[in-house]
Amino acid sequence: MYKSLRTFSFLFGYLPVAAMNLKKFQAQKANLSKQEYDALIHTEPQKWAKGIMARTKSRVETSGLDYLPDGPALLVANHEGNFDIPVLLSEIPKPFGFISKKEVKKLPVIPVYMEDMNCVFLDRTDRKSAYKSIADTVGKLKDGHSILIFPEGTRSKGEGVTDFKSGFIRIAKDAGVPIVPIAIHGTSEIMEKNSNQIRPGHVTIRVLEPFSAEEIEKLDAKELIEKVKTTIETEVQSMAQRKADLQ
């Protein structure tokens, strides 16, 4: 319970600082390139995420960062738990936005930051919103920004990788960008497996070899979905086995 209180107090207690820094960043925007501004904006969410993860006292191991390409890319990860976003923000040096449910817009400061990070908001109850989110994501990628997506749609809570929805393939094909698979294991240990109480977890993140834009264009959508899912799922299973062998 104590770790949960410390984590959530930092989550909201940091917002006034973040709001002041955002104003400073926005004042510099006119003098920076898109890539420079993305990198500048990324520093604050990364600092916030590192603070969150430090307060959970979790151990995070990250590998494969050399696979991150220059230029815009669609980052595709399995979705294990609520701490996937903080872990990835704290560990992935490449600036990225992500697709988020529209309810986040009700929070103070956070949605303003997310808009400058090039996040896309989705109303899951509205089919038109889903189509628009795909178009908005393609637009962000074509404009030179990277986006993270969880094709499972919902958290697996550590119960293995579930089926991938097909929207991410259309996004990658329409935007003409590479897909970077990312395997996540262990985030559900922090919260979901503890009746939503925060406890230290052992999280493993691995960035995997990208699928090039040329390869994506050539492959059939169903085949590509299966290839990306299998690539991530195989690595998640390997992570789980390695962790079990150490116990």
Rank of each mutant, 00 (worst) to 15 (best):
F25C: 09
F25I: 05
F25S: 11
Q26T: 11
Q28E: 15
L32M: 15
S33A: 02
S33N: 07
E36Y: 03
Y37G: 05
D38M: 09
D38V: 08
A39M: 00
L40T: 03
H42F: 13
T43H: 00
E44V: 15
Q46R: 15
W48G: 05
A49L: 08
A49I: 11
A49Y: 12
K50W: 00
K50Q: 15
I52S: 10
M53L: 15
M53D: 04
A54P: 00
R55A: 03
T56W: 06
S58N: 10
R59C: 07
R59D: 14
V60G: 03
V60M: 05
V60Q: 01
G64H: 02
G64T: 02
L65E: 07
D66V: 08
Y67I: 00
L68F: 12
L68H: 11
P69R: 08
L74S: 06
L74C: 02
L74R: 00
L74K: 07
L75R: 03
L75F: 13
V76M: 09
V76E: 01
A77K: 04
A77L: 01
N78K: 09
H79L: 12
H79A: 12
H79C: 12
G81Y: 11
N82T: 13
N82I: 11
N82E: 13
F83N: 05
D84L: 09
I85E: 08
I85K: 08
I85Y: 11
P86Y: 11
P86K: 12
P86M: 08
V87W: 01
L88I: 04
L88V: 02
S90D: 06
E91D: 06
S100H: 09
E103N: 07
E103C: 07
K105Y: 13
K105G: 01
K106F: 14
K106S: 15
P108R: 09
V109H: 07
V109K: 06
I110K: 02
P111C: 04
M114F: 10
D116N: 14
M117G: 00
V120P: 11
R124A: 08
D126S: 10
R127N: 14
K128I: 00
K128R: 15
K132I: 01
I134D: 01
A135D: 15
D136N: 14
T137N: 07
V138C: 06
V138S: 09
V138H: 10
K140Y: 12
L141Y: 08
L141D: 06
D143E: 15
D143P: 04
D143M: 03
